[in-house]
Nucleic acid binder design. Sequence first.
RNA 1: GGGCCCGUAGUUCAGCGGUUAGAACGAGCCGCUCAUAACGGUUAUGUCGCAGGUUCGAAUCCUGCCGGGCCUACCA
Length: 535
Amino acid sequence: MSGKSTYYVTTPIYYVNDVPHIGHAYTTLACDVLARFKRLDGDDVHFLTGTDEHGQKIETAAAAAGLPPQAFTDKVSQSFRDLIGVMNYTPDNFIRTTEPRHYAACQALWEKLVAAGDIYLGKYAGWYSVRDETYFVESETEVGPDNKRRATSTGAEVQWVEEPSYFFRLSAWADRLLEYYEKNPSFIGPDSRRNEVLSFVKGGLQDLSVSRTSFSWGIPVPGDEKHIMYVWLDALTNYITECGYPDQADPLWKYWPANLHMVGKDIIRFHCVFWPAFLMAASLPPPQRVFAHGWWTNEGQKISKSLGNVIDPVELVKTFGLDQVRYFLLREVPFGNDGDFSRRALIGRMNADLANAYGNLCQRVLSIVAKNCGEKVPPKGELVEADTALLDRAKGLLAIVRAELDDQAFHKALTAIWEVIADANRYVDAQAPWALAKTDPVRRDTVLWVLAETIRRVTLLVQPFMPGSTAKILDQLAVPPEKRVYAAFDEDLIPGTALPPPQGVFPRFVEPAPAAAPAKPPKQPKAPKQPKVAG
RNA sequence: GGGCCCGUAGUUCAGCGGUUAGAACGAGCCGCUCAUAACGGUUAUGUCGCAGGUUCGAAUCCUGCCGGGCCUACCA
């Protein structure tokens, strides 16, 4: 083994025109699981999230709220910071594009691009709608019977407007981008997105307008301060601001290029086309991988503010429990696909996978141990084939989970782990330790040791997904904190170690009796504050 | 209009040229009693969207059609 390898994973920086919803929670959760896994696996991890705070929309929203832009963004940015605590995320830093160091990084990058000849002053021209305060491309407009051109989407009249603008010479980078995609087949995941990006770039690229003069809330162009940098140039740069750019002697510069930018599928182009082009133009290496996940629907319906069916992660956690929500989001849907959030599916996962399969396995094993083995890890006798078969499957999981997570296949990692949990439950029934208690206590102890050891391994691997619950289980197995990393994966439980009394970790979720509350039929039945153990 | 993806048991999905198409959840039956009415065993359910074609052989490849989703640039 050589030195620690670095692992730099980022969320997008979230635009502060909205409070956090399930989509934000989902993206950051995926990154958090990866960061936690890599840390446990011994890597030198840097996990970054933050907020994107510039642009005309923010300027407008702040004005509407009667606040200066900075005060407005301070407030909204804080709500994203608060989500970290609610969801138990572990970012190493939270970046804001309004930080001075970010201004410096963006302006340095800008100057580098100018020096490279990839930024030039031109004219931005398009069909401008005064009412919408925005430009439309010609295909987004149509000429009506009165011979006036209007925006198709808003119906507002548009006029041809030209303003001076700096351009990035994106058109010159198409071939080099295609070459990069070719040489780095894992640059874009999942594959379906890769095809989209490829066909987009193959269709030819136009130069990109990267400055505006129509608003002022943003980062000024060096040497021409009427111009404000295009928000995406500003936003994307955050990933290298964090690493100290332009100071490549910065201690954090070792993390660049990032191993993974996690993004929603809506912003894949910015990350897979514009961003690598900017970086290559600045003689910097592009990120190693960009993964675009899908969207959630709510009970089969598209989520939108106007429908009023936005999912609030804080409410979810309150109703169902934090680790339950974390597990559900990453287990229910093949990562990369769109998925449906349904109450029934969530409760199904909570009860079938967590309470019945995993929680009950821990509980049944630990309570037999507590009652029969003097509240200690039982002695391990000679192992028979059934024992080693189960143990070997548990041992094999580390390599499987590692590989699946490198592919962002969270659901596959979890499926593999849960297969071993099912094996363990079968093993309990087949070995029947409660019967052995009467006939062969030595064998019984061995069986219990095998089970406890299997639970230990499984639980070590579940840690990144459900950190709170797994900590409780590892406490019950008396695994010391320093032995919860994967370097200690093969350090078996030591017989004779004193154990605390067992305690249920994953309660069943029981729907409240429908007879009690007939008041509001169409509303979802109110869930108990804390999931209660039935019986 | 052009391009990409998808349509497989009640549900979510796997299988992507080769024995009677699989898993999980849910359902029925049986067993067990250590455990959170949990666990185990077992049974049932599918014209693999439709129609053609290629092949000794297709859910798997090709064509067309139907249905659904996404992309088709610079107001995140």
